[in-house]
Design a protein around this nucleic acid. Structure first.
Length: 106
DNA sequence: CTAATGACATTTG
DNA sequence: ACAAATGCCATTA
């Protein structure tokens, strides 16, 4: 059996170093698709937690979005990773935004 | 297989 | 800028 979509999401999430954040769309894009919805679904289930750092995943606008254990807790975890969060949004989000190896036209 | 859902993203009013 | 509506893809019931 090939790795399911969720496993691939977690695999990319594992590549995200501490102090960095990524978005659902980037993860889906890294998988070669645009299933940002499916990515969020995988995080919510998170059968691989806490091995995966699902708290490092935020919205396209750097917004926290939500968290299975409470968005507040997610912010606390991010602050623990040197990631400042204000008004439910990541500070310098684009600066801390971790991009995967996406074969884009550049 | 069909229907419903979801921690999103994008476009329009 | 914000709210609502629509699109999107995969998973689960």
């Amino acid at each position: 059996m090939v790795k399911s979509f969720n496993e691939r999401c977690y695999d990319l999430l594992r590549r995200v170093p501490r102090g960095r954040v990524t978005t659902y769309g980037e993860i889906a894009r890294g998988l070669g698709c645009s299933a940002f919805r499916a990515v969020g679904n995988a995080m919510n289930k998170n059968p691989y937690a806490p091995e995966v750092a699902c708290h490092r995943v935020v919205g396209a606008d750097g917004k926290i979005g939500g968290f299975a254990s409470g968005c507040e807790h997610k912010i606390e975890l991010l602050k623990m990773e040197e990631v400042e969060v204000v008004d439910g949004k990541v500070v310098d989000f684009e600066d801390k935004f971790f991009r995967f190896r996406v074969p884009k036209t550049l």
